[in-house]
């Protein structure tokens, strides 16, 4: 039987061409080409936001953004990885803030320069309505901002493209923190659980898990009770 030949496509990494298997993600294509990634790489599963990458597809003038671990290489694609975004990240004390727009006027006053161009939304690899969450913050709707930005991975691509030069994802992080601290319904069961753990209710069980045989542990894991509500 003849092995099916893998189709190859070309990829241009900062000016240098490589042939890589069709269907590869940018990240696997880079490694296939011999790059050893020490930065701009993280979970490889689209959760951590470390591998923000700028690319341009063949024949298109538009610069696009994506996560290297999630974006599939197209033939003739030009790419440049963004190893780190040195964005402003002021420190603050949540206890001194209020869950409204006034907190943002103090910590991130630049967000009020948003011109509502929606460029951030266009580039977001998570398909988040980035402009909408910034607009919600501007009008003091912190709960909606926290909700809309929930899937943000803090890849930094939105901030790189913003003409008003604001750092959307750090503002969104503050919105979610304010939501958690002041607006979210208290998780009563969680408090109870923490108390129980502190009181040693689960100590024995944890100890037995620690010494359990691998197979039994697996079995217990699959048979575990999952609470859905």
């Amino acid at each position: 039987m003849m092995a099916t030949e893998t189709k190859m496509v070309s990829m241009v990494v900062m000016g240098e061409s490589f042939r890589v298997p069709e269907g590869s993600t940018i990240m696997s294509a880079l490694e296939y080409s011999g790059f050893q990634l020490t930065t701009g790489v993280g979970c490889r599963e689209g959760y951590c936001g470390a591998c923000g990458t700028l690319y341009r597809e063949h024949g298109d003038y538009k610069l696009k953004g994506g996560l290297a671990c999630q974006t599939v290489v197209s033939d003739g694609m030009h790419i440049a990885q963004i190893p780190f975004v040195p964005a402003d990240k002021p420190s603050y004390d949540l206890e001194e803030l209020t869950p409204d727009e006034d907190s943002f006027k103090k910590i991130y006053p630049e967000i009020f320069r948003c011109v509502a161009c929606n460029t951030c939304t266009k580039i977001c690899p998570q398909d988040i309505q980035v402009m909408d969450y910034i607009q919600c913050i501007m009008r003091g709707d912190i709960a909606t901002a926290a909700d809309l930005s929930f899937d943000c991975l803090r890849c930094g691509l939105c901030a790189l493209r913003c003409p008003a030069e604001l750092v959307q994802y750090n503002a969104a992080t503050l919105a979610r923190r304010l939501y958690g601290r002041y607006l979210a319904k208290p998780a009563v069961r969680l408090d109870r659980m923490v108390e129980d753990i502190k009181a040693g209710k689960y100590d024995e069980e944890i100890e037995s898990l620690k010494t359990m045989e691998h197979e039994e542990l697996k079995d217990r894991y699959y048979k575990r009770e999952v609470r859905t509500k």
């Binding site: 948003c114 011109v115 509502a116 402009m131 607009q135 501007m138 009008r139």
Partner: peptide
């Protein structure tokens, strides 16, 4: 008149 708010509005400019 039941006034409905525009959904997903942004700053007027």
């Amino acid at each position: 008149v039941d006034m409905k708010e525009l959904d997903r509005w942004n700053c007027c400019g």
